[in-house]
Design a protein around this nucleic acid. Structure first.
Lengths: 224, 224
DNA sequence: CCACGACCGAGAGCACTGCTCTTGACGAGG
DNA sequence: CCTCGTCAAGAGCAGTGCTCTCGGTCGTGG
C-alpha cells in the first residue's frame, strides 16, 4: 500500500515536473523541451527526474494526454445542448480554435507532424477522441441523413455508432476540416491571405454544419 | 568570375550534401537530421560542411524549398488542361496525396508543425504557392461564382487575382481541406477510422470541387 | 521502538549534437 | 613561379538523453 506521505510527495514532484515541462513546451516548442533544463528549473539534478519520468518520450506522451484532455474539456464545456444545433456547432468549433490559439505549441504537439521516432502510444487514444465525440453528438441528434447521400460509405461504421450511417463519412470530413483550418491559421499559412480570421473560421464552420445536415438557422426564435 | 573547375566541384559537393540530407530526412524525420551524420556519410568532417551550408536551419530551408518545388511540379504535371474540369481537379488532388505518401517526412517538414525556433524564411514563399496556383487556375477557368454566394469576402482579393472574387474564400477553404485530409491520413489520424482511403480522398476532392462550383460530371462526352 | 529496506537525490560518465576557431595543404590565377 | 584564396581537418565548447553507482533519509513491518 502506498505510504500516503511518500505518495503525496511523489505526486507533487511529478506535478511540478509536468508543469515546468508544459511551461517550456509553451515557450519554446516540443523539440526544445529538455529534460535537463526541466530538472534545473524544478531544482533537481537531471538524473533525479528519471525517477518520475521514464524518458523524454514518456514526458511528451503525458503532455499529449493532458493537452487532449484540455481541449476536449473546453469543447465539452462550450456545448449547450439546449441551444439551436448550429449554435452548438459553432460554439464547439470556436472553443477548439480558441484553445489552439492560446496553446499553439501544445496544439502543434498533438495535431502537428509527429516527433520523429515517436509513435503515439495507445493510452493517448481515448483522450484524443473527446472533441470528435462532442461533434458527433450534435450530428447524431440534429444531422439530416439526406446530407450524406453523395458520400460513399468508406468509414468504419463503428467509430461513430450514434451517427446515422450516411453521415459518418461527411462527419469525418468536417472533423478533418476543423483541424486543417485551425492548423493552417496557427502555422502561418493564412499570413497575408485571410484578413478576418474569425469571420473566415465561422464561415468554414457553417459550411461544415451544412455538410453534415444541421438544420439551417431559422429567422424566428426556435421552438415556435 | 567563378573559376569553372572550382565552381563545379563546389556544386557537386553541395548536391551530395543535400541529397544525403534528404535521404536522412526521409528515413528518420526532420528532428533526427544531423549535420554531423550527413558529413560522415558524405565523407567529410563535420566542420567542413559549414563551408557549404551556413547552419542546420539553412539546410532545412533548402530542403523545404526543394520539397515545395517537387510537390508543385507533380501537381502541375498531373493537370491536363484539355480534360474535363473535375478530372483535372481530381488528378491534381491525387498527385499531391501521392507525393505526400511517397515522401511523408518531407511533407511533414513542409506542412506539419514548424520546427521550434525556426521561422520559414521569405525565400520559401514563391515555391510554396505552386500547388495553390494550379488549383486556382482550374477554379478560375471553370468555377461557377454562384457557388460562393454563401461565403463572406474575408480573404485578400489579390492573392488569387484570376479567381472570381466570390470564389476566393471557398477556394482557400478547399485548399485547406486538401492539406488537412492528406495530413490526417499521413499522421495516422485515420487509423482504424477510414477503411478505403482512396475512395474517401476522392469523395473529399469531389465535394471540394462542388464547393468551388466546378460543373458536375456529365454522363455524355464533353464538348457535344 | 528500532532496524531494515525501499526510495530518492547527487554525481560521474558515455555517446551524441550544433557550431566555432585555428591550422595546414592544395591548386588555380596573376 | 609564386601568392593567396579555398578547403578539409582537428580540437574544443556548451549542450543533450540516458545509465550507473553511491550515500542518505524516512516510512514501515517486526
Amino acid at each position: 500500500m502506498p505510504s500516503g506521505t511518500r505518495a503525496r510527495a511523489r505526486a507533487e514532484t511529478t506535478r511540478a515536473i509536468l508543469d515546468e515541462a508544459r511551461r517550456q513546451l509553451a515557450e519554446q516548442g516540443a523539440a526544445a523541451l529538455s529534460l535537463r533544463s526541466v530538472a534545473r528549473e524544478v531544482g533537481m539534478v537531471s538524473s533525479a527526474v528519471y525517477r518520475y519520468v521514464a524518458s523524454r518520450d514518456e514526458l511528451l506522451t503525458r503532455l499529449i494526454i493532458e493537452a487532449y484532455d484540455a481541449v476536449g474539456e473546453r469543447a465539452e464545456a462550450a456545448r449547450d445542448p439546449q441551444a439551436p444545433p448550429r449554435e452548438q456547432w459553432r460554439a464547439v468549433w470556436r472553443a477548439v480554435r480558441a484553445w489552439a490559439l492560446e496553446h499553439p505549441a501544445e496544439y502543434a504537439l498533438v495535431y502537428g507532424s509527429p516527433v520523429p521516432g515517436y509513435a503515439a502510444p495507445a493510452e493517448t487514444i481515448p483522450a484524443a477522441g473527446r472533441v470528435a465525440m462532442v461533434l458527433a453528438a450534435i450530428v447524431a441528434e440534429h444531422g439530416d441523413p439526406a446530407a450524406g447521400r453523395d458520400w460513399p460509405a468508406v468509414v468504419r461504421a463503428d467509430v461513430l455508432p450514434a451517427v446515422p450511417p450516411a453521415l459518418v463519412t461527411p462527419a469525418v470530413g468536417v472533423w478533418t476540416q476543423l483541424y486543417g483550418t485551425v492548423g493552417f491559421e496557427l502555422f502561418g499559412q493564412y499570413e497575408n491571405v485571410v484578413d478576418d480570421r474569425e469571420a473566415y473560421f465561422d464561415a468554414v464552420a457553417d459550411a461544415a454544419a451544412t455538410a453534415v445536415g444541421l438544420p439551417a438557422r431559422r429567422a424566428g426564435r426556435p421552438g415556435s
